[in-house]
C-alpha cells in the first residue's frame, strides 16, 4: 500500500464485488447491519491488501470463453481425482505393496501465477504424483510408480492450461 505506483480501479472493484459475494454466501442474511459490516471489511481488505491479489501488472479481466474453459477443466479434474483415488487404493490394499517411487524433472512453460498454482495443485491431486518444487520453469515431481512417471509427458490437462493462457496472449 505504501509504495503503490498506480491504482488499478477495475481490478479493485472486481475484487470488492468478489469479496461481497463471498460475504453474502457466508452470512446468508440481508439485514442492513450485515451489509454495512461486510462492506466496511471488504473495502478495508481491498484498499490495504489489494496489491497482493492484483499482481505482476496484469490487468484483472474476465472473459466468457475463459469461464467455460475453467468449468470444463474442473469437470475433467474431478474425474481424474476419482481415478487417482481408486489407483492409490488398489496399491495400498495390495498385500505386496507394488510401488516403484522416483523423482521426475520436467519443464513448465506457464507464466501467470494463478495458472501455475492451478497446474501444481492438479498434479498433486491426480494419479500418483506430487509436486516437490517449482523453480522458474523447472518442475520437480515425485512419482509413486514408474508408469505414472512416463505418462506425465503428454498430460491432457497441461495442454488445456496452455490453451487457457493463450486467451491472454492473443490480445
Amino acid at each position: 500500500m505504501l509504495n503503490r505506483t498506480k491504482v488499478d480501479l477495475a481490478g479493485s472493484l472486481f475484487i470488492f464485488v468478489l469479496l461481497m459475494i463471498f460475504w453474502f454466501l457466508i452470512s446468508a442474511s440481508a439485514d442492513w447491519q450485515h451489509i454495512l459490516v461486510g462492506a466496511i471489511f471488504c473495502g478495508l481488505l481491498t484498499v490495504l491488501w489489494g496489491n497482493l491479489t492484483i499482481t505482476e501488472g496484469h490487468k484483472t479481466e474476465f472473459k466468457l470463453a475463459q469461464l467455460f474453459m475453467i468449468i470444463k477443466y474442473f469437470v475433467i479434474l474431478g474425474v481424474e481425482i476419482v481415478i487417482a483415488n481408486i489407483n492409490v487404493a488398489m496399491i495400498v490394499l495390495n498385500p505386496r505393496l507394488p510401488i516403484s517411487p522416483g523423482i521426475v524433472i520436467m519443464r513448465c512453460d506457464l507464466e501467470r501465477s494463478l495458472v501455475r498454482v492451478l497446474y501444481v495443485n492438479s498434479i498433486t491431486l491426480t494419479p500418483g504424483t506430487i509436486t516437490v518444487e517449482l523453480e522458474d520453469n523447472l518442475l520437480i515431481v515425485h512419482a509413486l510408480t514408474e508408469d505414472v512417471a512416463h505418462g506425465l509427458e503428454d498430460w491432457p490437462l497441461y495442454r488445456r492450461l496452455m490453451k487457457l493462457e493463450g486467451v491472454y496472449k492473443n490480445d
Binding site: 481425482i81 487417482a84 483415488n85 492409490v88 495400498v92 510401488i99 517411487p101 498433486t124 491431486l125 500418483g128 506430487i130 516437490v132 515425485h142 509413486l144
Partner: peptide, 9 residues
C-alpha cells in the same frame, strides 16, 4: 513422500 501420496488424494 509416499505417505503424502496416500494421504493427500
Amino acid at each position: 513422500y509416499n505417505r503424502l501420496h496416500a494421504t493427500t488424494k
